[in-house]
């Protein structure tokens, strides 16, 4: 990924970390589901692909994804210029980075607690 894309990815990430709450559920498994659910749907929305909202959980992910995408488009003009493969690339990197920050690299000792 080039510097420009990386810089853009950082902007998208920063927005999530500052404005959203869905990535901060209290356990690793839960965060994995959330990150995957919201970001995959956000990617689909950005690419104009159909999104599954058939279950309550999928619907919640879609809601958070849609708000995220709308914010992205409003805040970052370049988002609307990206081609689908660029979107997929940047969102993939974003997903990896977010998983790192909130799950795999997280210092939160409660993440793998079996109880609440």
């Amino acid at each position: 990924m080039d510097d420009l894309m990386k810089d853009r990815m950082d902007q998208l990430l920063d927005h999530i970390m500052k404005k959203c709450l869905w990535q901060f559920h209290s356990r690793s498994w839960d965060r994995k589901v959330q990150n995957e659910g919201v970001l995959s749907k956000a990617t689909q929305l950005l690419c104009g692909e159909p999104v599954d909202t058939s279950t309550p959980l999928a619907k919640c992910h879609w809601v958070d994804a849609l708000c995220l995408v709308n914010d992205y488009k409003r805040r970052f003009a370049w988002v609307s210029q990206l081609k689908p493969d660029e979107i997929k690339e940047i969102m993939q990197a974003l997903h990896e980075r977010l998983d790192h920050l909130t799950i795999t690299g997280s210092l939160n000792l409660e993440l793998n607690d079996q109880h609440y």
């Binding site: 709450l21 869905w22 209290s26 839960d30 309550p56 959980l57 919640c60 609440y116």
Partner: peptide, 18 residues
């Protein structure tokens, strides 16, 4: 969040944080 998580597990009600 504890009760929300349990409502999700036991009754399938999703949780939206606001």
């Amino acid at each position: 969040e504890y009760i929300c998580n349990e409502l999700r597990v036991r009754y399938g009600i999703p949780r939206l944080d606001i």
